[in-house]
Design a protein around this nucleic acid. Structure first.
Lengths: 247, 247
DNA sequence: GCCTTGTTTCGGGCCCGGCCGAAACGTGCC
DNA sequence: GGCACGTTTCGGCCGGGCCCGAAACAAGGC
C-alpha cells in the first residue's frame, strides 16, 4: 500500500489522448508545418515540403497524420492538396505552446533574412489577428483608451464594443459568435507582450485590411501599415505610428 | 522556384523547440504523470510509478526528462524525490492541451470508481483553483453578480476586486502579482464550461480552504463543500448549493 | 553494524516512426 | 494522345526511445 490512492484504472484514458495530441506536434517537421500554417492561409503539400526541406513523400505522410489527428483540414483542388489549420482553436493551441518556449533567442544571419525578420517583427498576422510591434501597439492604445481591460484579465469593455461599432462599422452582436471568446490575449513571441486575439482580434485585422490601412507585404505573413492607415490609427486610437516604429 | 517564399533558413529554430516541448508530453506515461501532478501537490517518484503502472526505473528516467525539460521541479528529501509542476504556467499549458481533447467520454466501471469520479465531478481542485460543478457554479454566480466579465473575454471587474477585498479579506494589490494574469478562464473537462483561474482563482480556492468552507476529501484532488461553506456562498454570492447539486 | 526501502544507472530487447528513393497514380496542359 | 507535374504508396534503412530487470547507491530504522 502506498500513501497515495491509485484509482483502480490507474492510468486514465485521458493520458492516452493527451500523449497522442502532443505526439502530433512532437516532430520537428510537423512542428514546422504547423508554425508555417499559423499564418492562417492554405498551403499546398509541396510548398510545405520545400519549406521544411523534406521529401514530398515525407511531407505527404505528415500531412495525413495531422489531418487525421484533427489539427488540419484539407481541400483538394486539381492536383493540389491544400491544407490549413482546422480552426481558430487549433491556432490557439499552437500559440499557447509556443508561448511556453523559453527564449525568443534567434538571431538571423544574412541580409535577406535580417530584412525579412525585421518586417515580421514590425507587423504580421498571427493566424487571423495582428501581432508584432503593430499588434502590441494597437492593443496598448486600445487598453489606454479603456477599450480593453488588461487589468483584471483580458476583455473587451463596453466602450470597446461601441468603438468596434463606430470605428469599424462592426455588427457588435456578432462579436460573440459561437464558443470562441470575444477577446483573448495572445502572447507575442517577439514582443513578449499580449496582443488582442479572439473574435475581436480577427475583426480588427480584417477591418484594417479591408480599408487598406494595412497591407500584406510579400507572400508571407508580414504586414505593413499604410500612410492612410497611420493617419486612421492616430485618429481613432491616438496612436503615433512613427514613434512606435511601425513605419 | 515555388510560389511560396521559403526563408533562407527554412525550418525555423522555433520548430525544434516546439517539437521538443511537445515531445515531453507525447508519451502515455509522462502524460499520465503530468495529469496526476495537475492536482498541484508534490508526488514521490514511487507514487507516480505505481500510479502509471511502470517500473520505478522507467519512472525515474521520465522524471529526469520532465525536470530537465522545465516542466517539473524536484525537491529531494531523505531518500524521496518529490516532484511537482514547475509553475502555474506549466499547469496552464497542460490544461490548455487537455481542453483540446475531443470527447470527455470516459465511463468508469466499478462502484468505487463511480463514487470517486462522482466526487471529482462535483468539485475538485485544478492545480491551485476550483473546478468541477463547484468551480463552474461559483464562477457563474460571480458572473451573474457582475464580479466577472465573461462577455467581452474573461476578466475580474472592479466590483469583483472589491468583493475579494470584502468577502475574502484579500489584499487587492497582490491580485496582480508578476506576470500571471489576475483572472483567466479555464475550460473544465467535465463541465465543458469556463471556471475562474489565474491569481484570483488561486486566492478564492485558498480562501475557501482556509475558512473550511470546502474540505479535501480523501487523498486526491476532490473537494467537498461544507455546510458552513454552503451558507457562506449563499450569503456572499446568492448561490444555492443544493440546487446546483454541490452537496 | 545489518536490513529495508526508495531511487538511480546500466544493459539489452524491442518496436515505433522518421527519412528517403522508386514507382504508381491523377490531373491539367498542349 | 502524350507529357509534365504534384502527390501518394511502398519498401527499406536506421536511429531513437520506451520498457524492463539486475545491480549499485543512498538514507533511515534497528
Amino acid at each position: 500500500m502506498t500513501t497515495q490512492a491509485p484509482p483502480p484504472d490507474a492510468a486514465p484514458a485521458h493520458s492516452i489522448g493527451l500523449a497522442r495530441l502532443a505526439g502530433l506536434l512532437a516532430d520537428r517537421t510537423r512542428a514546422a508545418f504547423c508554425l508555417a500554417l499559423l499564418d492562417g492561409r492554405a498551403w499546398t503539400a509541396g510548398e510545405l515540403a520545400a519549406y521544411a526541406r523534406v521529401a514530398p513523400s515525407s511531407a505527404s505522410e505528415h500531412l495525413t497524420r495531422l489531418t487525421e489527428g484533427g489539427l488540419l483540414v484539407e481541400h483538394r483542388q486539381g492536383r493540389h492538396r491544400y491544407v490549413q489549420l482546422a480552426s481558430p482553436r487549433v491556432a490557439e493551441l499552437i500559440e499557447g505552446l509556443t508561448a511556453h518556449l523559453d527564449p525568443p533567442a534567434e538571431r538571423p544571419s544574412g541580409l535577406r533574412a535580417v530584412n525579412a525578420s525585421a518586417a515580421l517583427a514590425r507587423g504580421r498576422t498571427c493566424y487571423d489577428h495582428l501581432a508584432g510591434r503593430l499588434g502590441v501597439a494597437v492593443t496598448d492604445a486600445m487598453t489606454g483608451r479603456g477599450l480593453i481591460d488588461q487589468d483584471g484579465g483580458f476583455a473587451l469593455t463596453g466602450a470597446g464594443r461601441t468603438w468596434f461599432a463606430e470605428a469599424l462599422a462592426t455588427d457588435t452582436a456578432t462579436l460573440r459568435a459561437g464558443r470562441r471568446p470575444t477577446a483573448r490575449g495572445c502572447l507575442d513571441w517577439t514582443e513578449r507582450r499580449q496582443h488582442l486575439a479572439g473574435v475581436a482580434g480577427a475583426r480588427l485585422c480584417a477591418g484594417l485590411l479591408e480599408r487598406a490601412w494595412i497591407r500584406r507585404v510579400g507572400s508571407g505573413r508580414a504586414v505593413r501599415l499604410t500612410s492612410t492607415g497611420a493617419a486612421a490609427l492616430r485618429d481613432l486610437l491616438g496612436l503615433d505610428a512613427e514613434a512606435a516604429g511601425l513605419l
